[in-house]
Design a binder for these strands. Structure first.
Lengths: 186, 186
DNA sequence: CTTTAAACGGAATCGGATTCCGATTCCGCA
DNA sequence: TGCGGAATCGGAATCCGATTCCGTTTAAAG
């Protein structure tokens, strides 16, 4: 919440965060705290004051990513003609994000098992998700009993599949989407 | 392949493997090599001769689990009346396995990102999966264009969802299954 | 009952995250 | 503009846990 008043502190915090993101993207889990510090032009102590733990640093990087998803959900999704299309766009976006950024995803997955969003971004995501599901219920393009949790799980599944290299995740988007559209009935 | 000739070696290898499994189940990623050694009643050196790396040990534990899935696939699945039912049983089984054993799954996920089976067990799984998909194609209970990769991805997704606590994975089994049954068509 | 290659135990080593603390800066205030 | 001191810095020192090393012990072939 309360940003520190000293401007250099905030500047350093950002520098560290960005550098960490880049390094993780390049070399994944093998980058060490001292490297991040060096590349950011600060001492290890500084890195640790801003991010008390390596996991905290990774968490911050992860949050940036969730923020991107959130803004997509807020800006692009409403533009889609129907809820189903919006969900498809969402899943695809998440997949693409993890596909490039694969290395970063790996780091996140290794630090936290899985990767559910936390904090206000998490709340906001949940809220937007609920809205999307609601929309689907009313415009009838999603099965009537979908829940945010269903959506959440689908997103998580796509995220996981798109950064591991098991099969064509775009294919899975189709499958999940078909499942979300409506229950099977002969 | 070639089991060592000395019987004590083989006995120790098993002891270590089982103890590791138990400890991982109890306390997850925090158990350390020295503990495993102590609990197994051997020295650290012994643990390392059998499993040259912590990751290797975790990998061996993981393989045991894959072996269970394989035997399920070989024994229970053929008994199901149709391919779709078999897939449902498979997904459910995988989910249950990861739900109890949650801690173990966490350890595996932390050591390897994701968790694709390796070696002969992996091959065998792939083969059985292919057979199942084939069956689905011919009895018509799965959509005509499913692939082993689709099945693989679904299994992976359920595994991931059932050991993280994001939503009701059984629900997701339904969704994925609906997607695997047939493509959407208005 | 030797012989000997293989297995054992566990102290020592190594690598990397985290802590500590004296030296340096910003910021508000006179 | 100049000063006081709290917050920030940097990076050497510490801590912790995985991994290596090597002298000792042991199963099993002849």
């Amino acid at each position: 919440m309360s940003r520190p008043s000293r401007t250099d502190a905030e500047r350093n915090r950002l520098r560290v965060l960005n550098v960490a993101h880049e390094l993780f993207a390049e070399r994944g889990d093998e980058v060490q705290m001292a490297e991040v510090a060096r590349a950011a032009g600060v001492g290890v102590g500084t890195v640790y004051r801003h991010f008390p733990t390596r996991q905290a640093l990774v968490g911050a990087v992860a949050e940036q990513r969730f923020a991107k998803v959130l803004s997509f959900l807020e800006e692009e999704c409403p533009a889609r003609p129907d809820a189903c299309g919006a969900v498809e766009a969402l899943l695809t976006r998440v997949g693409e994000m993890h596909e490039e950024g694969r290395a970063v995803s790996g780091v996140i997955e290794a630090s936290f098992g899985g990767m559910a969003p936390r904090g206000e971004v998490g709340e906001a995501l949940l809220a937007m998700g609920a809205r999307l599901v609601e929309r689907g219920r009313s415009d009838g393009t999603l099965r009537a009993d979908v829940t945010v949790a269903d959506l959440y799980m689908s997103v998580g599944a796509v995220a996981m599949l798109s950064h591991n290299e098991i099969g064509d995740w775009r294919r899975f988007v189709e499958i999940a989407l078909d499942g979300l559209r409506r229950p099977y009935h002969a």
